[in-house]
Design a protein around this nucleic acid. Sequence first.
DNA 1: GGGGGTTCCTGTACGC
DNA 2: TGCGTACAGGAACCCC
Length: 288
Amino acid sequence: MPELPEVEVVRAGLEPAAVGSVITSVSVFDERALTRHLAGAADFAGRLEGATFTAALRRGKFLWLPLDDAESALIAHLGMSGQMLLRAPDADAERHERVRIGIEHPVHGELAIVFSDQRTFGSLAVDALIADGGSRIPTQVAHIARDPMDDHFDDDGFRSALSRRGSAIKRVLLDQGVVSGIGNIYADESLWAARIHPETPANRLSTPAVRRLLAEVRIVLAKALAEGGTSFDAQYVNVNGQAGYFAHSLNAYGQQGQPCPRCGTLIVREQFMNRGSHFCPRCQRPAR
DNA sequence: GGGGGTTCCTGTACGC
DNA sequence: TGCGTACAGGAACCCC
């Protein structure tokens, strides 16, 4: 499931092939891949064909490739199972291929960017760029907060946002408008590392606890990034279709019934927000 | 505007 | 073997 480290691996993989490339063709095989592009497939293709990608950028789990008109960008959100693959232009279709974008790079020659997505929660769009401080970001990304690895992330602002929320800290960590890039896996891992129960009301966390949590979020994300992301199955891969290794390092997520690596108590899994929440009932005590 | 629940989707795993 | 069902979850959306 692509979270920040997985999306960053994809962004970094696309960058050398995409930046400087001219878009030579666009094929949309499934319009559900364009739910973020309301004007439809013909409009989508028309805005891309002939344009040149000028960069490969990311905020949270969104990534985008600005076009040389300096006013728009191809944006992508991978959802649950989206993949952005670099392929030879005549490569066979992927099983869940939704969109294929043919490009020509001045050095690497012809390539295809293939958007493949089993569960169809991901989507692409061509979106307008708007001012955001000193830079420009797509309108659909404007509401997304910076991620904790961003140099401009506001630690004090994060602490103050938590103090205004009575919701469970896990829900707040998953709110991309508060802090971006964190999904279910890294939320559980960060909360385990910081010894915080996932249902602790955010505004009940002390300042040291928030600092500890933020520090653990950064450690977990950095470690996952270094290992190329987390993979359990074929649903997350880099642009070459290869899986990451972070699944070998998980302490809480998916470890229900296994001993907590810190204290030996069995990790439990509870239903929370229509998904699984994994934690150590001894190390991560609920707030009283 | 915070809060919390629902919805979209498909492959896999499991029970009967 | 085959069928039905539960499950995985990011984020938009809805109502309170």
